[in-house]
Amino acid sequence: LTLLFLSFITLIKFSVHIEPWRIMISNSEDDRKFLNEYKPGPEDQKLRILLYGPTGAGKSSFINSVQTVLRGRPYSQALVDHTEGDSFTKEYITHHIEKDDDSFYPFILNDMMGLSKLKGVLVEDVELALKGHVKEGYKFNPETPLTEDNQFYIARPTPNDKVQILVCVIPADKISIMDSEVLEKIKNIRLKASALHIPQVTILTKIDDLPLEMHAKINVYAIKGVKEKMKAAQANMGFPLNCMFPVKNYHEEINMNREVDALILSAMRHIIQYGDDFIKFSQNRSEPKIDSL
């Protein structure tokens, strides 16, 4: 028994840093206030957040978790399937988040079919969604991309149809075994978004499915194993560490959890800030230049 206890202590020692490797300056209430008070610069502008990633990564669960945190109660508008297999989400779905005063937050989250080796969403369709050409309710075809003659094709997208920030949702427990074709699709999508100057953020889900030492009730940014998974995502897919945020989705809890809320609120604040920077960037590019006399 003594030997087992010493082995456990050794495991924790090598899995946890004494000092956190990332400091969260803001707190949950600051982040919540920021999200509640946020307004895009242009009038009637909505900040569109597009989520993509491998099948089963937790895109829909993350959307539900954001809704849960902002509403203050468990919420499950985005349908979720916890069985292994093809993508449960088949359509292009927009999620609006309602406030207590019956108004809506000025940012929206788009869910879509996941990436997989054979039956997942096509890179071409993700690019069309980024440009605002995909209409709500379009059912993705894993064999052929959306065409201009389709009723769900938006020929002349408005700024509100276009995506302002792209979020890749990656399961922490599957990074090392992710299919090479899926990795290649993620890299291609990143290139498409970069060509459009759209900012990109990575959400690292399922950190609670990592080995036992990850369940220690300490700052997640003091856990060595979480940082190692983030570095693996950086090496395999090119995501910068400062744009990567580990979260735990609400999926089994029936009550609110402060630690879960804090990570989700922090991630959402950064997502909104990056997206808002892009709105301002796009606005400045579209404004006519006045020649100096």
Rank of each mutant, 00 (worst) to 15 (best):
L1P: 14
T2P: 07
S7R: 05
I9G: 02
I12M: 15
F14T: 10
S15Y: 06
E19N: 13
I23D: 06
M24K: 14
E29M: 06
R32D: 09
K33L: 08
P40Y: 03
G41Q: 15
Q45S: 15
R48Y: 03
G53L: 01
G53E: 02
P54I: 00
G56F: 04
G56H: 09
A57Q: 06
K59T: 10
K59C: 07
I63N: 01
I63Q: 02
S65A: 07
T68V: 07
P74E: 01
S76F: 14
Q77W: 05
Q77H: 14
A78C: 06
H82Q: 09
G85D: 04
G85N: 08
G85Y: 09
D86K: 13
T89S: 02
E91L: 08
Y92A: 05
I93N: 11
H96V: 05
D100I: 09
D100F: 10
D100W: 12
S103M: 02
F104I: 01
P106L: 02
F107Q: 01
I108K: 13
M113N: 11
G114H: 13
L118C: 01
G120E: 11
L122Y: 10
V123N: 09
E127F: 12
K135N: 03
K135D: 03
Y138R: 00
K139V: 15
N141L: 05
P142R: 01
T144H: 09
T144S: 12
T144N: 07
L146T: 02
N150Q: 05
N150I: 04
Q151M: 08
P157K: 02
K162C: 13
D179A: 11
S180G: 12
K185N: 13
I189V: 14
R190A: 06
K192E: 05
K192Q: 10
P199F: 06
L204G: 06
L204Y: 10
T205L: 07
P211C: 01
L212V: 15
L212W: 13
E213G: 02
H215E: 07
N219Y: 09
I223A: 00
K224G: 12
K227F: 14
M230S: 09
K231M: 15
N242I: 01
C243W: 14
M244R: 00
H251K: 10
I254M: 08
D261L: 03
M268C: 13
H270M: 06
I271T: 11
Q273Y: 08
Q273G: 03
D276Y: 11
D277G: 10
S282A: 10
Q283V: 08
Q283I: 08
P288R: 00
P288E: 01
